[in-house]
Simulated assay, not measured.
Amino acid sequence: MTPYLAPGPHAPAVIVCPGGSYFWHDMDGEGRQVGEWLSRNGISAFVLRYRTAYVPAFVTHYRLLFRGNRYPDCLNDLRQALRIVRQGAGKYGINPSRIGVMGFSAGGHLAMSSVELLPREEWPAFVVPVYPVVTMTAPCVHKRSRRGLLGDSREHNRRLCDSLSMEKHVPAGCPPVFVVNCKDDPIVNYHNAELLDSALTANHVPHRYIQYATGGHGFGASQTKGTAECRQWKDEFIRWFREISR
């Protein structure tokens, strides 16, 4: 993890999970820039380089024969990150009861996994999936992320795909969720976020869902990527976060 610490003795904190289809990471626009932006707004950030399949697995399919990195490695990394940040709260100057998880694209799927697949006592205080991968089943699955997460030998395992489809397992008492995406997303079908919004609504989870008309995918915390419309999400998140922190 790379820390971006906000001033103050009891700052809230966010573990940031950059996207990259569970094959690689965008450590700039969805990592460094996110950490710098959050810390400027009084929220300490810890950018996590969780295990992914990496490029050799993308180009060779060697995981048909060898395990490589695959689920649950990434979730175990996030789980350990939550433990480390909580246990180091005094050292980092953060409030251990106000630690959330923010993820982008495949990292958004990982962020939601932290409340759907970890024990309740280990849940983050809030979750922020940004243009997230949500489902592992047809018709709007992001196939590259599914392959990256599950591995070539398991990507069509129906039981595993169902168990890792976030819209199917929203738990009772889920912490607050902030979801954002764009309808013109050319990478991850925008219905992914709609599925999550519907599941959160059906389970009475406090959340906010913003769908922008334009902005595409992968804009992260950039000041130049996407559109002026979608870049509003950062201000909207800060407002939402202050509301749930009252």
Rank of each mutant, 00 (worst) to 15 (best):
Q33A: 11
V34D: 06
V34H: 09
V34C: 15
V34Y: 09
V34L: 14
G35P: 05
G35T: 11
G35E: 09
G35Y: 11
E36Y: 12
E36V: 14
W37Q: 09
W37E: 13
W37F: 15
W37K: 08
S39V: 06
N41P: 04
N41R: 12
N41L: 09
G42S: 09
G42I: 03
G42P: 01
I43H: 00
S44R: 02
S44K: 02
A45G: 05
F46A: 03
F46M: 05
V47P: 05
V47D: 02
V47K: 01
R49L: 08
Y50S: 02
Y50M: 06
R51N: 07
T52E: 02
T52S: 04
A53P: 07
A53L: 11
A53N: 02
Y54N: 04
Y54S: 11
V55H: 10
V55Q: 11
P56D: 04
A57M: 05
F58A: 07
F58E: 06
F58K: 03
F58C: 00
F58H: 03
V59G: 03
V59T: 13
V59W: 06
V59R: 06
H61C: 08
H61I: 00
H61V: 00
H61Y: 09
H61G: 09
H61F: 09
Y62K: 01
Y62S: 03
R63S: 12
R63T: 15
F66Q: 14
F66R: 12
R67P: 08
R67F: 12
R67Y: 12
R67M: 08
N69C: 06
N69Y: 11
N69L: 02
R70V: 07
R70S: 13
R70L: 10
